[in-house]
């Protein structure tokens, strides 16, 4: 038995497919590809497929790590090819290799977020992102009770840059991601909109990479 780390690109319409549904989709793909998966032992055996970090509904990803466990012999190149032959449009394996980092090392996500110039100007966006006053509501827990918490967004923006491309504004931003705290680009956009008093949705939001604490790429 050995573990391989797939890199999954999930784009286009697939951004509307939830994290929960992805497990089943991958499970079936692996069956169609006839890849010898390792099954968990116990009462209700199921294959080991692990999406290391959830991707929010509405956000695309081009480099999402998925670990699977294989029994028997199959090269990483063959695993990748077989899966790509059976995946629906919008899903693609871009890489298959042995895991290097541990999943707990995931600390940040790097995102590309596009806005229409009709919705917001670069200056306004820059002003909001540099204001230090962005906040949003996130559901959290107080004991057992579910509550809404106000989160200071500004202090969680690790890094950002703005450029204009194809008549749109491209925000490149690094936000916390991982098992302890997450902030996704849609929440960030919402808080920018709240700050400016406008309703704002990005044209497109893509997670391009996951990063470790020292901002090196998670591999």
């Amino acid at each position: 038995m050995f573990e391989v780390r797939l890199r999954l690109s999930k784009t286009g319409k697939l951004k509307y497919v939830s994290h929960l549904d992805m497990f089943r989709i991958m499970q079936r793909a692996v069956r169609r590809a006839d890849i010898p998966l390792w099954y968990t032992e116990g009462f209700n055996p199921h294959p080991y497929i692990s999406f290391l970090l959830a991707l929010s509904l509405g956000v695309e990803g081009i480099n999402e790590p998925v670990d699977i466990r294989i029994v028997g012999e199959m090269t990483t190149a063959e695993i990748k090819d077989r899966l790509n032959n059976v995946l629906p449009a919008g899903l693609e394996i871009t890489d298959c290799s042995l895991p290097f980092n541990k999943s707990a090392e995931i600390t940040y996500g790097a995102y590309d977020v596009w806005y229409s110039k009709e919705d917001i100007s670069s200056d306004k966006l820059f002003e909001a992102l540099s204001s230090g006053e962005l906040s949003c509501q996130k559901s959290g827990k107080s004991g057992r009770k579910k509550i809404m918490k106000t989160v200071n967004v500004s202090e969680h923006i690790k890094k950002f840059s703005l450029e204009e491309a194809d008549g749109m504004i491209l925000l490149k931003v690094i936000l916390p991601a991982g098992s302890t705290f997450n902030l996704n680009p849609l929440q960030l956009t919402q808080s920018v909109g709240d700050y400016l008093g406008i309703s704002l949705t990005p044209v497109r939001a893509v997670r391009t990479a996951l990063l470790c604490e020292d901002l090196s790429e998670f591999r």
Binding site: K13, Y16, S18, L57, G58
Partner: peptide, 12 residues
């Protein structure tokens, strides 16, 4: 993004 289970409506 504003509706429940949007994947119902995208096909593919």
């Amino acid at each position: 993004p504003l509706v429940q289970k949007p994947a119902r409506y995208v096909g593919g």
